[in-house]
Each structure stands twice: as structure tokens, then as C-alpha cells.
């Protein structure tokens, strides 16, 4: 079970969207660029007034992964070992999210495979974007 989440001002839109079953990512309107993790400024043009939230398709591919055998997080230690994959978004494959890839056997991660977003409850009920494999390697 993942730890719960206490949304802060910066990331609240991300977490509220997740509770509503939507994946949103920060976008700088000034330079038309997505960024994740969220920040108070655009990482490219440094603008702090042009950041908005854009809904994503919820599709991506598995870019990379490692298998965690020794997690520092108490609530996850009973689940070891587990996959932690890097998902590259369809809209911009330089934008990444992490995933435990529910349903994918440990260390049998199909790199390049298509994935779609799902939303999983954490320890305090906050939902979080997760991903499951929907297709073979791209």
C-alpha cells in the first residue's frame, strides 16, 4: 500500500484531478511546454504566471525500470521486491511518471510496451496515477 498524500498548494490540482480520474500535467503557456514534477516556475523560460494544468490522454510507454528490493518506505516493504517503471507520456515522451505496473510480474517488464493510466487509492484514500500494460512493445 502506498503512503497517503497531503496535497500542498503547488500540487493540489494534480491530486484533485487524480481523485476525479483524470491525469493533468503542468504546462507553460508562454513557451508551450509541459513539465513534471510541478514547479512554481517554468523550467525553460522561468515564467511564473503562465503555468496551467492540461489534461493528458492517459497513454504512454514504458521507458525504463528497476526492481526495488530494499525500499526505505515502511508501508511498501511487505511488497518487496516490486517494479518501479518510468512511463513516458504520449504527448511528450520527455515527460515521465513512475509506476509500480500493477499486474506485471516482478522483473518481467516489457520495455517499450504501451500503457494506460489507472487510478489507485493510497493509504489515506487519495488516488494516484498508476499504469497498466495494454499492448506489446512499440
Amino acid at each position: 500500500m502506498k503512503q497517503g498524500v497531503a496535497p500542498d498548494d503547488l500540487t493540489r490540482p494534480f491530486w484533485e484531478a487524480a481523485n476525479a480520474g483524470r491525469l493533468v500535467i503542468q504546462r507553460c503557456a508562454a513557451c508551450d511546454r509541459l513539465q513534471h514534477p510541478p514547479s512554481r516556475r517554468c523550467g525553460e523560460c522561468r515564467a511564473d504566471t503562465a503555468l496551467e494544468w492540461q489534461q493528458m490522454s492517459g497513454r504512454g510507454v514504458i521507458q525504463n525500470y528497476a526492481v526495488v528490493h530494499d525500499s526505505p518506505v515502511r508501508l511498501l516493504q511487505a511488497d518487496q521486491p516490486f517494479n518501479v517503471a518510468v512511463i513516458a507520456l504520449e504527448e511528450d515522451n520527455d515527460i515521465q511518471l513512475y509506476s509500480h505496473l500493477p499486474g506485471t510480474p516482478v522483473d518481467e517488464v516489457p520495455l517499450g510496451a504501451a500503457v494506460e493510466v489507472i487510478f489507485e487509492a493510497t493509504a489515506n484514500g487519495q488516488r494516484v496515477p498508476e499504469w497498466r500494460v495494454v499492448g506489446a512493445e512499440a
Binding site: 502506498k2 503512503q3 497517503g4 498524500v5 497531503a6 496535497p7 500542498d8 503547488l10 500540487t11 493540489r12 494534480f14 491530486w15 513534471h36 514534477p37 510541478p38 528497476a66 526495488v68 525500499s71 526505505p72 518506505v73 508501508l75 511498501l76 516490486f82 518501479v84 513512475y98 509506476s99 509500480h100 493510497t122 493509504a123 489515506n124 494516484v128
Partner: peptide, 15 residues
């Protein structure tokens, strides 16, 4: 049992 939202973006996966 819980993380601040900005930390959770990275840390929820227990890496």
C-alpha cells in the same frame, strides 16, 4: 503514513 503532495510526486513509489 502520508507525504506532502510535492514529495509524494517522487516518493510514493518507495525508491
Amino acid at each position: 503514513d502520508a507525504l506532502p503532495g510535492n514529495v509524494a510526486i517522487h516518493a510514493l513509489w518507495g525508491t
